[in-house]
């Protein structure tokens, strides 16, 4: 990843940014405690895509490990990592603040509360996922509605309302933890909050693909206009940008992504905050390049982190821990030599 910073040619850089996530996906597919050689993996994927094309010379266990365990997890990691990073990059540009994460409007606290509620009510995996998504989205909706009351300095007020709503749901979450059965439910809630992709299934994956793809597509399609938002409201409006509409679209799209991501993975911090910085060091602050680059790097980052999570020890290490433990020193190192892309 660090080597990318030195790449100056735009076209080569674009090719690398497209190929890198694909390479990481392939690598992650072969990587793990259950050994699968590249030939078998390719044959199984081919057979899944076009049944009967290749003769089956693999065990059903290998096939299940690859298609039902590893593949959803890998696709999930790529989608969630890319999604959190592109949301973070959009929010940083929109709020003109490089310290903003995609969770700034309270989506993580809301989703955390929703998931805890689902766990407490024994709503099942999909029930908890649905409640996490719903409360994550509800939290952002509340922040947005609260900010709409004030007409002046909307971007700043939006951040403040996000903090307020986030604090409210954090308290509600604490309340749920307090009343949860400490031997049965509480550990589940705590592990959920640390973030993990260990329980990823095809059923869960199918539910998050549409919102993340729709959200990312929406952000990508307005990404040039987002540049103007970073000049501040008055200047953007004087350039003919309908700031209210654009901001609503950005918040809505980012919320689709983050709420869907958090609903299956728990709270994975750091990706949405730091990957946009890394991307900005490589391609600069222009959203036309920044958003696609964030998408690509976010996917790579979470894929690699998840590979580490499932292989460092025989017991899984929660992702929320690893993203920071590995990410913080790497970022500190990059900070030392890279240009930040903001003043």
């Amino acid at each position: 990843m660090a080597g990318l910073i030195g790449v100056q040619s735009g076209r080569l850089r674009a090719a690398l940014l497209i190929l890198a996530p694909l390479a990481c996906c392939a690598l992650s597919l072969l990587h793990g405690r259950f050994p699968v050689d590249p030939g078998t993996a390719a044959s199984i994927l081919l057979d899944q895509a076009v049944p009967g094309l290749v003769t089956a010379n693999w065990s059903p266990i290998t096939r299940a490990a690859l298609l039902d365990v590893r593949l959803p997890r890998i696709l999930g990691a790529a989608l969630i990592g890319g999604g959190l990073a592109i949301s973070g990059a959009s929010f940083q540009t929109m709020f003109r603040n490089p310290l903003v994460s995609p969770f700034i409007l309270g989506v993580a606290s809301g989703a955390g509360f929703g998931a805890a509620l689902g766990i407490l009510l024994s709503a099942g995996a999909l029930g908890a996922q649905f409640l996490a998504f719903a409360f994550g989205a509800l939290a952002v909706l509340l922040s947005y509605a609260m900010a709409r009351v004030y007409k002046t300095a909307p971007a700043l007020v939006l951040v403040l309302s996000g903090v307020i709503v986030g604090a409210f749901f954090s308290s509600l979450l604490s309340l749920l933890k307090y009343v949860a059965d400490p031997f049965d439910k509480l550990p589940v809630i705590v592990y959920w909050l640390m973030g993990s992709l260990a329980s990823m299934t095809n059923a869960k994956l199918v539910l998050i693909v549409p919102p993340i793809l729709i959200g990312a597509g929406a952000l990508l399609s307005v990404r040039w206009r987002m540049n103007a938002l970073s000049l501040g409201d008055d200047e953007a409006r004087s350039l003919g940008v309908d700031t209210t509409k654009l901001r609503l679209l950005t918040v809505g799209a980012a919320t689709l992504i983050t709420a869907a991501a958090v609903s299956v993975s728990g709270i994975i911090g750091w990706v949405g905050l730091v990957i946009p910085h890394l991307a900005r060091m490589i391609v600069g602050p222009d959203s036309r390049k920044l958003l696609p680059a964030s998408l690509s790097l976010g996917a790579c980052y979470l894929l690699l982190i998840d590979d580490a999570a499932r292989s460092i020890t025989s017991a899984e290490i929660p992702l929320g821990i690893l993203t920071g433990v590995i990410g913080a020193p790497v970022f500190a190192l990059l900070l030392r030599k890279g240009r930040l892309g903001w003043a």
Partner: peptide, 9 residues
């Protein structure tokens, strides 16, 4: 006062 936050070219 035009405040640039990000280093656009």
């Amino acid at each position: 006062a035009h405040q640039a936050v990000f280093a656009f070219t």
